[in-house]
Simulated assay, not measured.
Amino acid sequence: MSHWPDPVPGLVIRYSYLWRREADQGREEGVKDRPCAIVAAVKNDPGGKTVYVLPITHSMPIDHSEAIELPQQTKLRLGLDGERSWVIISEANMFSWPGPDLCTLPGMGPDSAAYGFLPPRFFKIIRDRFVERGHQGDPGLVTRTE
């Protein structure tokens, strides 16, 4: 029986993220596991949760309005590498928790998918910018199903 963490906004998890461009090409699986920030978790019927995650990437965005750089101190606290990284706010994956694309952290046991939490003020900036972009147009959601 799995005991995945509760999907709380601000939690950074390991997840097989499917980029929107890949979904538009007909892909159904992400190419690699990556850290992703839970931006929202909504209760649904029959008692589960729908989770929205934003990818974290080393690739510097061409359009800086589409991402927020992850502070180095936060990366180190989460146990991520020392390279610069960005939280992408121009797209998200949506799935029923825990879903088949949640991944365990290497060397951390069979049910450990969480790196830890983003600092509350930093998370609020990410969440607010993601919501604002959604109000301005296409939020770039990719719905993942089992």
Rank of each mutant, 00 (worst) to 15 (best):
A67S: 12
Q25N: 12
Q136K: 14
T143W: 09
F130A: 08
D138I: 07
R121E: 13
V12R: 13
R127S: 09
G107K: 03
S112E: 14
G26M: 00
V142I: 11
E132N: 04
G82W: 14
L70M: 14
S90T: 04
R34N: 04
R20C: 00
I62M: 12
I62G: 05
L76F: 08
V131F: 00
V8I: 15
R14Q: 15
L105I: 15
M1G: 13
G26K: 06
I126R: 02
G99F: 02
E91N: 10
E83K: 14
G48K: 10
E146T: 11
H58R: 09
S59C: 06
H135Q: 14
T57H: 05
G26E: 05
M1T: 09
G30E: 03
D111K: 02
S90H: 02
D111I: 04
K32V: 07
W4K: 03
G116L: 04
E28Q: 14
G134Q: 01
P100T: 01
L105S: 03
L18G: 00
Y17Q: 00
R121I: 02
S59L: 11
V87R: 05
T57L: 06
S65G: 02
T104H: 12
D63Q: 08
D45K: 14
R21E: 11
N93D: 12
M1P: 10
R34T: 12
A67Y: 07
S112K: 15
S65E: 15
R77F: 08
G30A: 01
H58V: 10
I89E: 02
T145I: 11
M94D: 03
E69C: 11
R84D: 12
V8E: 15
K75S: 15
